[in-house]
Design a protein around this nucleic acid. Structure first.
Length: 289
DNA sequence: CACTTGACCTGTCCGC
DNA sequence: TGCGGACAGGTCAAGT
C-alpha cells in the first residue's frame, strides 16, 4: 500500500526527525525482517550518524556517516515510526496508541539513538525488508538497475512517459502502469485514480491508447500523486507516516475503494473489477473498453 | 523477451 | 458464535 506519495511522506517526516542523530543500538527479530543482515549488523550501525534520507521509487534510503545505507521497502504493511524521548503514555500523544505501544508483535527492527529516541520498523505481513549495504552499492541493486524514471521529476515529460510504454504494448494499461520498470512508484491506488482521471479503462491494451490519452494519463498521474503527497498519503489500512499518523488522501479519492458510490464526474456508481490480478475501481460510464 | 500467474504473509471480513 | 475461504497488494520467481 505504501506507494510513491506515502514513501515520500515518510521520507520528509524522517528528514526532519532523525538527520544528525547518532545510532547507539539496533535490534532485529528475524532474518525475514533484515534479510542480508551481517551477524553483527548492530556494530555496523552503532556510532554512525544519519546524514540523509532519500527515496527512489517506493524504496527509502537512510544514509549513514559510515558510508553505509539502510535500504528499506515497506511493501504493503510496513511502517517506519519515530518515537521521540519521553513522549510515551501521554505527553503530546494522548490518543496515539501506536506510539505508546511500540514495540509490538509486528516490530521487525528497532534503532535507538543517543538522545533516547527510537525508530521502529513494523511490518504485519513481513513482506517488507531492510538491507544494509555500502552507499555506493545502492545503484547496483537489481531493483535500482531496472526501475523506471521518477514520474514527478521536473524534467520528466509527457513524451518520455509515453515512450516508456512501448515495451508493453500487448498488455493492459493497468498492468503496465503498475510495472516499476516502466514508471517508478505507481501502485494500485494511484493506478486506479489516474486512470479514472484520464478516463481510460484499465483493461485497454497499451497499444490502443492514443497520444492524447497518454498525455492525459501523464498529467493526471502527476496531479494525483502531488495531491496525495500534500495530503500525507493514503491510509485505507495500515499506512502511517514517520510520526505514526494517517494520511488523508482517501478523503479525496475519486474511484479507489469507492465501489457503489457515485462517480464525481457523472454520478454513475463506481464498479469494482479484477484487472492484472488486483482489485480495480472504475466508472463504467467514463471509462470504457 | 513479453506476458501471466502464484507465492510470500497475516489480519480482517463475509457467508454459512 | 465458529470456521473456512476470499481478500488485501508490491515484487519476484516460475510458468506459458
Amino acid at each position: 500500500m505504501p506507494e510513491l506519495p506515502e514513501v515520500e511522506t515518510v521520507r520528509r517526516g524522517l528528514s526532519s526527525l532523525i538527520i544528525g542523530k547518532v545510532v547507539t543500538n539496533e535490534t532485529h527479530d528475524t532474518a525475514k525482517g533484515f534479510p542480508n543482515a551481517p551477524s553483527d549488523v548492530s556494530s555496523f550501525l552503532r556510532g554512525a550518524t544519519i546524514i540523509a534520507i532519500r527515496r527512489r521509487a517506493k524504496v527509502l534510503l537512510i544514509d549513514l556517516s559510515s558510508g553505509y545505507s539502510l535500504v528499506i521497502h515497506l511493501k504493503m504493511t510496513g511502517q517506519l515510526v519515530y518515537v521521540a524521548p519521553n513522549v510515551r503514555f501521554g505527553a503530546g500523544h494522548p490518543n496515539d496508541s501506536l506510539i505508546n505501544s511500540l514495540p509490538d508483535t509486528s516490530t521487525r527492527v528497532t534503532i535507538e539513538f543517543s538522545d533516547g529516541s527510537t525508530l521502529f520498523f513494523n511490518d504485519q505481513r513481513k513482506f517488507g525488508w531492510v538491507r544494509l549495504l555500502p552507499t555506493i552499492e545502492v545503484p547496483n541493486m537489481d531493483f535500482m538497475k531496472k526501475v523506471g524514471p521518477e514520474p514527478l521529476a521536473s524534467q520528466f515529460t509527457a513524451p518520455q512517459f509515453q515512450e516508456r510504454f512501448t515495451r508493453r504494448k500487448k498488455t493492459n494499461i493497468k498492468a503496465a502502469i503498475l510495472d516499476q520498470s516502466v514508471v517508478a512508484g505507481v501502485g494500485n491506488i494511484y493506478a486506479d485514480e489516474s486512470l479514472w482521471g484520464a478516463k481510460i479503462h484499465p483493461q485497454r491494451l497499451v497499444g490502443t491508447l492514443t497520444d492524447d490519452e497518454f498525455s492525459a494519463l501523464y498529467t493526471d498521474l502527476r496531479e494525483v500523486m502531488n495531491l496525495a503527497i500534500e495530503k500525507g498519503g493514503s491510509s485505507n489500512h495500515t499506512y502511517v507516516n514517520a510520526e505514526g499518523k494517517k494520511g488523508s488522501y482517501m478523503d479525496f479519492a475519486r474511484a479507489f475503494r469507492r465501489e457503489g458510490l457515485p462517480c464525481p464526474r457523472c454520478s454513475t456508481p463506481i464498479e469494482k473489477l479484477r484487472v492484472a490480478g488486483r482489485g480495480t475501481h472504475i466508472c463504467p460510464q467514463c471509462q470504457t473498453i
